[in-house]
């Protein structure tokens, strides 16, 4: 246990490096798995945005804004990270298009809501909730297929 403790800083560094970057995809299967993970992360962010819009009366302004901002940030980093992975073959291109279409739509939708919220509240909350629900279930189906 003593050498283990000595290795701790090194292990931390390794772990940070491992988690900080997305490793390259080795083959189609690996790429599809990454696409599935990406969709999963996007589902999470969309759900939080949806909760805020659906329960907007129960929250304070700054709080809702923080949570929405986080959702936009999460979605955009998800897009950036996955977009940076080289698809290993032509068949992977299709997977890439499919997932990026969904996540990019989610990003622009949530970013839109954030802008409305900062201005004078979400204009049509019911429609937004429906839209986000639809997106989340599409993303969730995609993640289910690629795990």
């Amino acid at each position: 246990m003593i050498p283990l403790a000595r290795l701790a800083p090194l292990a931390l560094l390794t772990a940070l490096l491992l988690s900080a970057c997305v490793s390259p995809a080795w083959d189609d299967h690996d790429y599809a798995l990454k696409a599935g993970k990406t969709a999963e992360s996007a589902v999470s962010a969309v759900r939080f945005a949806r909760s805020v819009v659906a329960h907007r009366d129960r929250m304070t302004g700054p709080y809702a804004e923080v949570v929405l901002t986080e959702a936009v940030r999460d979605l955009s980093s998800v897009n950036d990270q996955f977009g940076g992975v080289q698809p290993p073959s032509d068949s992977s291109d299709r997977v890439r298009d499919e997932v990026l279409r969904l996540t990019e739509r989610a990003e622009s939708e949530v970013a839109d809501l954030l802008i409305q919220w900062r201005r004078d509240g979400v204009k049509d909350p019911e429609a937004a909730v429906r839209e986000l629900d639809g997106l989340a279930s599409e993303l969730s189906d995609f993640a289910e297929k690629h795990r």
Binding site: E40, S44, R47, F48, D57, M59, E70, S140
Partner: peptide
Amino acid sequence: VEAEPGSLGQMVLPVAEGLG
């Protein structure tokens, strides 16, 4: 709903939903 909280704001969301 398969949401995984990754920030403090998201972690306290259940309280906001439950108690306003």
